[in-house]
């Protein structure tokens, strides 16, 4: 019983990913055919890369990204571009390397603009899955660290980023937070710890009631102050 069932499982595996796993002699033909399609796919992905890349740096730079976005009919400030960067795991803001480009487009199974356009809603869904969103949220912060050894982002940048990555999920929280961040003078930058606490805050705290917020817990002072401000603002 056990053997048979495990045998079936491995069978399924082989068929499921024949292109990579098949080692049986008879599937040589299959392999070369599928590796041909794979290499064709990579070729097309690469081709797309070379339409936007900058010759001197061999990267897609800010101008390339802008052209790419306009071909996609998406603003370059659109959150979907940030999602795409997350999928590629792009390291540097405003730049895509060939490796990152391949990683992202392959995962989306898109080797031309049309397919990519169609893949975007799927990507959105993927990012919004609870297990992915926190990772995406943390990534968006790191993506804004453009200088060497930079560990925090300016309040203005943080506000824009909050609007972009949390705005559609937690509109009232983001509006109040942005208003507070802009009027306070205590903080000029936001660090990763505070950034992650904001997401936690949105997920856990009843808003705008704030009745389950406890400043004696380990919330960063930034949020203690925000809550205090909120409570003072309310009649």
């Amino acid at each position: 019983m056990m053997r048979r069932s495990s045998g079936r499982k491995s069978d399924q595996l082989v068929t499921g990913s024949a292109a990579v796993n098949s080692t049986a002699g008879g599937s040589d033909l299959l392999r070369s055919a599928s590796s041909k399609t794979v290499s064709k796919e990579i070729e097309r992905i690469d081709q797309l890369f070379y339409t936007y890349f900058d010759r001197s740096s061999s990267l897609i730079g800010p101008e390339g990204i802008e052209a790419f976005c306009s071909d996609l009919d998406v603003e370059h400030t659109d959150v979907r571009i940030l999602m795409l960067a997350w999928r590629m795991n792009a390291e540097r803001q405003g730049y895509f390397t060939l490796e990152e480009w391949r990683r992202g487009l392959k995962a989306l199974r898109a080797d031309n603009l049309g397919k990519l356009k169609k893949a975007l809603p799927e990507l959105e869904k993927e990012v919004l899955r609870p297990q992915n969103f926190q990772d995406f949220y943390a990534y968006s912060f790191r993506y804004c660290l453009t200088e060497e050894k930079q560990k925090s982002i300016d309040i203005d940048v943080a506000c824009e980023l909050l609007n972009l990555v949390l705005g559609f999920k937690f509109r009232p929280q983001v509006d109040s937070l942005v208003e507070y961040l802009k009027k306070q003078h205590e903080y000029k930058v936001v660090n990763m710890d505070q950034w992650m606490a904001i997401l936690r805050f949105c997920n856990e705290i009843n808003f705008p009631l704030l009745d389950n917020y406890d400043a004696d817990l380990a919330w960063p002072i930034l949020l203690d102050c925000f809550v205090e401000w909120m409570r003072g603002e309310q009649p």
């Binding site: 560990k151 660090n191 710890d193 004696d216 380990a218 960063p220 002072i221 203690d224």
Partner: peptide, 14 residues
């Protein structure tokens, strides 16, 4: 004050 302790903890995290 507790808030001063929090400040130092945050600085050490930083």
């Amino acid at each position: 004050k507790p808030v001063d302790l929090k400040k130092r903890i945050e600085s050490l995290i930083d």
